[in-house]
């Protein structure tokens, strides 16, 4: 690693060296005095840019920081502000500028091209520590670049997907409501919907919340292998939409089923609509997978308990999600 860095440094420092230019008799651009102070300012600004961009990465890594969002904005904003300031100082104090007006030349001639080359080189004549400045600019650019790609670390695990499949539901886990009271089967009525959580588990987990509804058992057409998953017609599904992980906060139920749309669980974000009667199948909207169903059991005390884990992975899809089983 160290060797690589040294090699990179040598490459950067050596790159600017060229064969000495043949001196022309006359300069095109007017000569201007060097200004070491301006160069120092630019170097300092580049340094501050790199520092701010690095601070962004550090703030990003420290997850428990209060006001993290504000600090992220501040550090990245400062990095760009310092970079802009450095470029302004270079443009105003270090680059020789001369506005020239002339007709377009006929075709490109070698001599004129040389003159343009010369123009470009002379414009940076005032810089006495050109390589150091290039290095400083490179460091500032590299730090900002690193800061910009850092948030990609939050895109999630690339190969290790086990955390995405883990849920707190096991056979026998009781369903509790928002206040922690057990959900009782006789309380769950048709035409209403309830939110349940696994007793004693972290509710912030993606796999924790479920939505509970009751349908007429005669209306159910659950997929094969889900016999006994809906005792008395009570069904539980993950409350997290399989499209973009919004909460399934809508339950539409017909007052008069003969003429009105059938019961459905709907996500308010993009209107993915799931049919509870057929085990959470998508009947409308962008969701690509059915809503995972949680098997239920009713204990002797009338409490709802999980009969196992979900029928499929909870939350939005990633590649290979369909072939996985929740852990």
């Amino acid at each position: 690693m160290k060797r690589w860095l040294l090699a990179l440094l040598a490459l950067l420092l050596g790159r600017g060296r060229r064969a000495p230019r043949v001196e022309r008799e006359e300069r095109i651009l007017p000569d201007a005095p060097t200004s070491p102070r301006a160069e120092l300012v630019v170097l300092a600004l580049f340094g501050l840019t790199a520092l701010s961009a690095t601070a962004f990465i550090v703030v990003y890594a420290l997850d428990r920081l209060s006001h993290q969002t504000q600090l992220l904005g501040l550090t990245l904003g400062l990095a760009f502000a310092f970079l802009a300031a450095a470029l302004i100082v270079i443009a105003n104090r270090l680059v020789v500028t001369e506005e020239l007006e002339e007709d377009y030349p006929p075709a490109a001639h070698p001599a004129e091209q040389e003159a343009i080359d010369q123009l470009a080189e002379e414009s940076t004549d005032r810089m006495t520590r050109k390589r150091l400045l290039v290095l400083g600019g490179g460091a500032a650019g590299a730090a900002i670049g690193a800061a910009l790609v850092t948030p990609a670390a939050s895109l999630g695990p690339i190969l290790e997907v086990a955390p995405l499949l883990r849920t707190p539901w096991r056979k026998g886990v009781r369903l509790v409501d928002e206040r922690g009271k057990p959900l009782l089967a006789h309380v769950i009525r048709q035409g209403s919907f309830y939110t349940g959580f696994p007793e004693g588990a972290d509710r912030e987990q993606l796999g924790a919340p479920v939505v509970v509804v009751r349908l007429d058992p005669s209306e159910l057409h659950l997929p094969d292998g889900r016999n006994g998953w809906a005792p008395q017609g009570i069904l539980a599904f993950s409350k997290i939409c399989t499209h973009a992980a919004c909460a399934i906060a809508l339950y539409r139920k017909p007052t008069f089923p003969q003429v009105e749309p059938r019961p459905a669980l709907v996500c308010p974000c993009h209107y993915s609509t799931f049919d509870p009667a057929t085990g959470g199948k998508v009947i409308f909207g962008p969701a690509g997978r059915p809503l995972p169903q949680l098997p239920l059991e009713i204990s002797t005390g009338g409490e709802l308990r999980a009969g196992g884990n979900f029928s499929g992975p909870v939350g939005p899809a990633w590649w290979g999600v369909r072939s996985r089983k929740p852990l």
């Binding site: 035409g191 209403s192 919907f193 309830y194 539409r252 139920k253 017909p254 007052t255 009105e260 749309p261």
Partner: peptide
């Protein structure tokens, strides 16, 4: 009541 497609909310909720 829960008119039309709106769910009903009992006193438990």
């Amino acid at each position: 009541i829960g008119p039309y497609l709106m769910p009903r909310f009992g006193t438990d909720e």
